[in-house]
Amino acid sequence: MKTQEELTEIVRDHFSDMGEIATLYVQVYESSLESLVGGVIFEDGRHYTFVYENEDLVYE
């Protein structure tokens, strides 16, 4: 089982391919040991929310 830090790094690596990240945040109250819920804001102003669970990243 991966730690929350490892899950965060996986998500950061994925989004870094889309541009320069200004902020990546995790909603700790919605996340667990198996899933990571949060959002990412890019330097150009784009903002996505995401759920990473079971090695699957869903964002909008």
Rank of each mutant, 00 (worst) to 15 (best):
D17M: 15
R12D: 02
S16Y: 07
S16V: 09
M18L: 10
N54H: 12
L7G: 02
S31W: 12
D56W: 15
V11R: 01
F15M: 07
I10H: 07
L7T: 03
A22Y: 10
R46D: 04
G19N: 02
F42T: 02
S16D: 07
F42M: 12
I21P: 02
D17V: 14
H14A: 13
E60F: 13
D13E: 12
G19S: 03
V28G: 08
H47K: 08
K2I: 05
Y52H: 02
D17E: 15
F50G: 00
Y52G: 00
I41V: 10
V28Q: 13
E20H: 13
E55G: 11
G19K: 02
Q4Y: 11
E9D: 11
Q4W: 08
N54E: 06
R12A: 07
Y29N: 07
K2D: 04
Y59M: 09
F50M: 00
T3Q: 05
V28D: 07
E5N: 09
D44G: 04
V51D: 03
Y52A: 03
M18T: 03
S32A: 12
Y25L: 04
T3W: 05
T49V: 08
M18W: 11
I41Q: 05
D13N: 13
Q27L: 15
L24M: 09
F42G: 00
E20V: 14
S35M: 12
G38E: 01
D56L: 15
V11G: 01
V28A: 13
Y59R: 03
E30S: 14
G45Y: 03
D13H: 14
K2R: 11
I10P: 03
R12I: 08
G38D: 01
V11L: 07
D44W: 02
L33A: 13
V40M: 02
L57K: 02
L7F: 04
E60A: 13
V28W: 11
I41Y: 09
L57T: 04
Y25D: 03
Y25K: 03
I21K: 01
L57P: 02
V28C: 10
R12L: 09
L57D: 01
Y59G: 03
T8P: 02
L24V: 08
S35W: 11
Q4G: 05
G45Q: 04
V58H: 13
S31A: 14
H14R: 13
T49R: 10
L57S: 02
I21A: 01
V26L: 07
V26A: 04
S32G: 09
E43P: 04
M18G: 03
I41K: 06
G19Y: 03
E6Q: 09
E55W: 09
S32C: 09
E9T: 11
Q27S: 13
H47T: 06
L33M: 13
F15G: 00
L33T: 12
E60C: 13
L24W: 05
T49P: 03
Y48T: 01
